[in-house]
Design a protein around this nucleic acid. Structure first.
Lengths: 133, 133
DNA sequence: CTCTGTGCAAAGCGTTTGCAAACGA
DNA sequence: TCGTTTGCAAACGCTTTGCACAGAG
């Protein structure tokens, strides 16, 4: 059980119901688009404004609580900040699977000599196991 | 000297002046946004339409002649298709540097078991050598 | 109580579309 | 010549903005 209120406050943000709802829904879904996030929030509170979702995603991205996953020819997905990992993105069903990396991290450090790494975006596009059937 | 006309034709596309111009400019710049691409084309031919640029980038992406590089909180860049490589994207000056990978490729194959890889998007964000000064 | 955050409606802007004319093969 | 591509202008849809009101601390 994650204490989102504390996380928000320690980033200098007020723990509003809207923000708590956003963090909870992203966490439940793993990765989600703005639209789907809005739809989920709407189910709980139909007075939620799409503008509020946009504003908060931006705010929380700037505070590094939320990360954007830009995807080729599609809308961006958003996820909670966690340790670096790879995304396996299915071209067919659009599913996104997280994959941890260990050795890969070492390689990346070696590659990025003279480059101070802040964030890595490792997306692999292809066909997932399910869609191969 | 690359024969873009041949490449286009073998993809079933007509080798129009506009398309040849797009490919030449992308090749010269390495990575470029739609806007900058349009501006470069406009210098040569001021009757070029932005819609034509959009249409052709899409068409050539579908034929895998051009690849999109989606970037967090910024507009996408486009590059010519070449062997897989890493992008070092500077948070400060927005420069994009290509970096070849060898060992990394092996790791990726290992990670993506049961996943048929079609394209990898490896973007590392940080501060480039120049901007560290 | 004060300042931040929300909801609403309008504005903004990048991208797409439809169609007649131009062009490539 | 015939099908494809272009240029133009309008339409579209996602995202942002401004402002009055509500809510968190």
């Amino acid at each position: 059980m994650i204490n989102y209120a504390e996380i928000l406050k320690s980033s200098g943000l007020k723990a509003t119901l809207q923000r708590l709802s956003i963090l909870k829904i992203i966490n439940t879904n793993g990765h989600i688009t703005i639209d789907d996030l809005y739809k989920e929030m709407y189910k709980v509170n139909s007075t939620i404004s799409l503008a509020t979702v946009y504003k908060n995603i931006l705010t929380m991205m700037r505070k590094s609580l939320v990360l954007e996953i830009p995807i080729i020819e599609k809308k961006s997905y958003y996820e909670l900040k966690k340790s670096d990992h790879i995304h396996l993105i299915c071209d067919i069903c659009n599913s996104i699977e997280d994959k941890d990396i260990n050795d890969l991290g070492l390689e990346i450090n070696r590659v990025s000599n003279n480059f101070i790494l802040s964030h890595s975006q490792l997306n692999l596009y292809g066909t997932c196991e399910e869609c191969q059937k």
